[in-house]
Nucleic acid binder design. Structure first.
Lengths: 117, 117
DNA sequence: GTTGTACTTAACGGATATGTTAATTAACAA
DNA sequence: TTGTTAATTAACATATCCGTTAAGTACAAC
């Protein structure tokens, strides 16, 4: 997994319309018009959002007659989950003490007697 | 957790410089100059990246004399982890069959006899 | 063929993002 | 006061994002 792919995935997910589209696709394939229906936004705008998602690898598109059914592709989401997992210890309560400890260990200018406990 | 906060968090994480800064901060507090050191980029550019991270709640900043030590704040990362977790079933192997099943269930134009198995 | 439906692309506009250099603020040190 | 270091802010250039409307493409139905 490259950094560029993380860039594209995070950037795609930064838009609420695109996240809503993914949520919709989590329930099954849908056409562009079906995906556009809930939004107060022109069809071309949705089409561009879909292109962004496709470029990020978050969806794939088939062809059935004049329809382009969209489908969720979760690979990049797995990458995101893997990335964020590295930070779990910073929000898990059981690791708070360790985080504090690590921080104290290498505070460059801190007074050593400032240490809690 | 609001949608806006997810927007800001994902947008912040879409930049590789900012992700690298977070990775650095995972090892402990650091000043702006320390954070800037690995990058071929001007200090004002780093300062702006830090402002983006701060606005997203991903870091906090203290004051020690003329230094502004930066510290990782993991709350928004926890939100990200929670968000992406909803999609786990789409990449977990044990759920592939279920995803297929759901897809078949509501394919609008599919031939019912197309169903696998 | 013509018409209708589904969707994309083109052209445009405004807002935001990301970098630069130069100037400024703030705190310490001589 | 003067100078040094740390960091931010100002001013600017460029690029990308996100929406619009209008035009174009692809397929289906008649």
């Amino acid at each position: 997994m490259t950094e560029d792919r993380l860039d594209a995935t995070f950037a795609s997910l930064a838009d609420p319309t695109r996240r809503a589209i993914l949520a919709r696709l989590a329930q099954g394939e849908a056409t562009v018009n079906e995906l556009a229906e809930p939004f107060a936004m022109s069809l071309p705008a949705i089409s561009r959002h879909l292109k962004v998602l496709e470029r990020a690898g978050l969806i794939s598109r088939g062809r059935e007659a004049q329809w382009r059914p969209c489908r969720l592709e979760a690979g990049p989401l797995k990458d995101i989950a893997g990335w964020v997992e590295h930070y779990r210890r910073f929000w898990d309560a059981s690791f708070d003490r360790m985080a504090d400890y690590l921080k104290e260990l290498q505070t460059p200018k801190g007074d050593p007697d400032d240490r809690k406990n």
